[in-house]
Amino acid sequence: MSHRESIEELIYESGARLDERDFKGYLDLCEDGYEYTIEAYSPEIRKDMIWLHHDKAGMDLLFKNLPKHNSDHSTLMRHLTVYKVDVDEAAGEANVVSGLQVFRTELDGGTTELYAVGKQHDTIKLNGGTPKLGNRKIRLETRNLGIGHHVPF
């Protein structure tokens, strides 16, 4: 399997794990030094904003705390399209840009809406053919997320 193929599989797998709320499975795809960030630009205040930032341990706690909270139980489905893969063999990593669409489906009746769009920037550690997620930055275009969500994109 080429780097590109294994990287694309990893990106899509990471989305599928989150869709299925298989949070352990998702974290298993991540390096120990993994960091996750959701960012957006606000034209109102003309500033870049960080909306969520966690390391791997922080993501693990966020997932483990979920049952203690009251959350919207609509399901999320992430649709990812890998746009660009830049492999740096010497550094043993690749930078990947993907388009992200998040669809939200209400439990009652199953109505689906396009919930958010953005770009996903991943740094992938190649690990000699077993790539893992090293860093993920999601840059959201959508800034009205209604009542919000407890599960990251």
Binding site: W51, L52, N65, H69, S71, G146, I147, H149, H150, P152
Partner: peptide, 24 residues
């Protein structure tokens, strides 16, 4: 401050979503 804010109050924060879920 940003970290503290986001923990409970951002669109992915623990409290804001619950408050909005309530009024929704």
């Amino acid at each position: 401050r940003i970290r503290d804010h986001n923990a409970i109050w951002g669109p992915f924060g623990r409290n804001l979503h619950e408050d909005l879920l309530g009024v929704h």
